[in-house]
Computed example of a mutant assay.
Amino acid sequence: MTPPDWSLLLDPPPFPPHGYARIADRLASLLGTKADIVFVQAEAVVALEAVAASLARPGLPVLNIITSPYGGMVGGWLRRAGAEVVDLTAEPGEPIKAEAVAGALDRHPQTALLSLVHAESASGILNPLPDILALARARDIVTVVDAVASAGGHALDIDALGIDVAVIGPQKALGGPAGLSAISLTPRAWALAERPEAPTGSILSLIDLKQGWLDTGRGPLPGMPAPLEWHAFAAALDRIEREGLTAVIERHAVAAAATRRALERLGLALWPAHGAPSNLVTAAVLPEGLDRAALLAALPAEVEITACIGPGTEHLIRLNHTGPRATPIAVARGIEALGAALRQAGVPADTEAALSDLPPRA
């Protein structure tokens, strides 16, 4: 097999200065929002830190929901900025329960900001976002949603749900590049960010993005944008718009359902044990005594089956069916490879039965 000619990526044409606003408008249309869209020219974890650094202030009462290491990081960044953070941590590896959120808000009625992840690619769980946002709206709480993984894989109508801040990563279900990210912000969110002590002169400053791009007419972006990332983002949106976002979400749902059925027929227990799974990755519990590292090492490099991340996931693996991988052929390749690795490890696994009702692989 001839390796790709990566030199074709050299000397890319510049991205047109008017194109950034166009991408913002296309993304806003897809996600159902009239909120401002700004861009962080870095991977989405930087955007999450920028939101925490820009919105938090000394004494701000925050309820931070933790269902993976990402929630823990956000809580740390909020504390660093001086916020008074109450962490609400789910059972290890499980989604948070809306009842637990309601109870925490009753115990902390002064809460002004609520932060949570929508769908966790770390462990394959889905948090009950609409229920939690309804609780926040009823209490007039500003909401921050990490939708890095979920946008494109689950319904995410930002305005209808009442999300004040949504952080979007193109590299997951949208199938785009990993080197930039987007944030939607409502006027309520900007009201928290616009204060004298807000960080400026920093990649973590949302105010810099507002003043340097939004307030100047959304022309050229400050700094030196990486044209490859922007051309790739535009191409990803082209592909999403051609397929239709509803169809993209349905494709993820079909791939997830097929993966869950196949894993059960391989004899594996599905995760989470309680609550809803995501459409992005499917997690399964390995048989007792099976060496997870050895099993994963036996898999072909091109198959995206990895260890789950975070407390409570030490015996879990996850099959990635996100973005372009949300197809029957990608699911089949993963199940075939996993079945072979299980048999090599001495675990009976009937791959033919597992794939018996998979959708057509075309």
Rank of each mutant, 00 (worst) to 15 (best):
N127L: 13
P128G: 12
P130T: 13
A119S: 15
V144K: 02
A136K: 01
I168W: 11
V117P: 00
L116Q: 09
V142G: 07
P177H: 15
E194F: 04
V148Q: 08
T89W: 06
I132C: 11
A193N: 03
S123W: 00
D131C: 06
D159N: 06
M73W: 14
A100D: 15
A104C: 08
H108C: 00
P128E: 13
G76E: 13
A193W: 02
A98L: 00
P130Q: 13
A119F: 06
A151D: 05
P196M: 05
A98V: 11
A100E: 14
A100P: 03
D164E: 01
S123E: 05
G72W: 13
G82D: 04
A147W: 09
R79F: 08
G103V: 02
W77S: 10
V165H: 05
A134P: 06
T143V: 06
D159V: 10
L156C: 15
A98H: 01
E99N: 10
L78E: 07
R195Q: 03
L114A: 12
W77L: 04
R195T: 03
A151M: 02
I183K: 01
S150D: 11
A182T: 14
W190S: 10
L78K: 07
L78G: 04
Q171S: 15
G72N: 09
W190Y: 05
G103Y: 04
D87T: 03
L113N: 03
G162N: 07
L78T: 03
A149Q: 02
V167Y: 09
E94W: 13
I96A: 07
G93M: 01
P128W: 12
L113Q: 02
P92K: 00
A90T: 01
H108V: 00
A134T: 14
P95I: 00
E84H: 13
I132K: 07
E91R: 12
P128T: 11
D140S: 11
G175Y: 15
L180E: 14
A178N: 14
V86W: 03
L161F: 04
V167N: 10
G175I: 14
A182G: 14
V142A: 14
L113D: 02
L185N: 03
G124V: 02
A100H: 11
A149I: 09
L135W: 02
R80W: 01
T186R: 05
L129I: 13
P170S: 13
A98C: 01
